[in-house]
Design a protein around this nucleic acid. Structure first.
Lengths: 231, 231
DNA sequence: CATACTTACGGTACTGAGTCCCACCAGGGG
DNA sequence: CCCCTGGTGGGACTCAGTACCGTAAGTATG
């Protein structure tokens, strides 16, 4: 039986020390001393002190990108949902490491910021994909794409955090349900839930601002509801 | 005529140097040399090198928190929309500084990460407020709250970026429209339940979603406009 | 006017992250 | 045998950020 790899020794040493004396109180010097390697070796394996806790985020990001580009068969949000499930599964496979990371990011502000920043990268990826998929024919399409990406990522984070806190037995089932909710949120009402299946678009979304009485507004209201069914 | 304050000299020197030779290529030493002050003084005014570009984010965050806690008169998403408008107006008042910051965050990854992290703080604030406001009676309420917060923040960022890029003449009008869209997105379909906010300046903002005829909606509409704000 | 107290500033020295370079030492062909 | 290559260790360096101390300029108080 061979000794564990240098990389593993480093992660072990780092996480142990982070637990013992806290993240900021642990220097890279401490880590390499416990791991029994040189300081240079640490930075060769992990580009920074933070990176010990966030391993191969880049590779996962690439995997997500690949999944998105090769899944043109599915409609936009469904493809994104698939990619998101990929991310969640990655965390699930990490198992204990993911939970230790969560404990750390909950305490250390710098790590929480880094976590958020890396989430932002996924969101950016999704946004670009959805924007590309929708094409910004209509004004407001890019806004809609952005909100979609944000919603998808939020759903993922929500389920992930529930699992990390141990509040969730079957995260895969929950992510699927959450994704269905998100898709239903953006799908034109009437079609997915089958409440009232009208031909084109039974939904009426109305938003206006006025300082007049309702009765004074009625003609304008009626005009909005009958005339402009925004296509 | 007195010389500009130390703080202003520091920001000027920093931004100029960042433009000239880039962010990473500029040391704090360079900045203080050009500003004609000591190195210690720099860190007294700005806690870090990045903070020169992101001034008083903490104060703005506090302002948003105050606005949220004191705006119990409005329903959840409307209160959040008001707070978001506050943030946007802050950026608009910054004017040139905001644009220079945008140019920098577009190039330097570290700064972009910091920007995203600070946006995450707003989102967290909104999420907590909405969660609190909705109360998680139903399962999935906290997920919904999280998505709402994400959507609101996304809308803000979208309009802000458009303004920063000079693609947008009237950002306040756009943010209001975007917020109406967001509110309409989350208003439940089928039942003409909507949100109203009539306390600001005599104007009434109404947003709802329905698949029924206007005539069928009228009673509910009238209830929203007359009864609900009284309680 | 003199004495304290306060506030802002500058300087020095230090820690710690991250980089660079060079030297070492395996193994694996020629 | 030498050469080449990849992983390693060490030492020196840059730079951000902190701690501490000394000092000059107000400002109140006697």
């Amino acid at each position: 039986m061979s000794r564990p790899s240098v990389r593993d020794r480093l992660t072990d040493a780092a996480l142990t020390l982070f637990d013992e004396r806290g993240y900021e109180q642990t220097t890279v010097e401490d880590i390499v001393e416990r791991a029994g390697v040189g300081r240079t070796t640490f930075f060769r394996h992990y580009g920074s002190k933070e990176a010990v806790i966030f391993p191969d985020h880049d590779r996962l990001l690439d995997a997500v990108r690949d999944r998105l580009t090769t899944s043109s068969h599915a409609t936009g949000l469904v493809a994104v949902s698939d990619a998101v499930r990929l991310v969640l599964l990655h965390y699930l496979e990490e198992g204990d490491l993911a939970r230790r990371r969560y404990a750390l990011t909950s305490k250390v502000a710098a790590l929480r910021d880094r976590e958020i920043a890396s989430v932002g990268r996924y969101q950016r990826l999704f946004r670009e994909f959805i924007t590309d998929w929708m094409g910004d024919r209509t004004p407001g399409a890019s806004l809609r794409a952005e909100i979609m990406a944000a919603a998808v990522v939020s759903a993922h984070n929500h389920v992930l955090r529930r699992w990390l806190r141990g509040e969730c037995a079957d995260p895969v089932a929950e992510i699927d349900e959450a994704m269905r909710d998100v898709i239903a949120l953006f799908a034109p009402a009437g079609t997915p839930q089958g409440t009232t299946d009208r031909s084109t678009d039974g939904t009426t979304v109305l938003a206006f601002r006025s300082d007049q009485d309702l009765d004074a507004l009625l003609p304008e209201l009626r005009r909005l509801l009958t005339g402009s069914s925004k296509g």
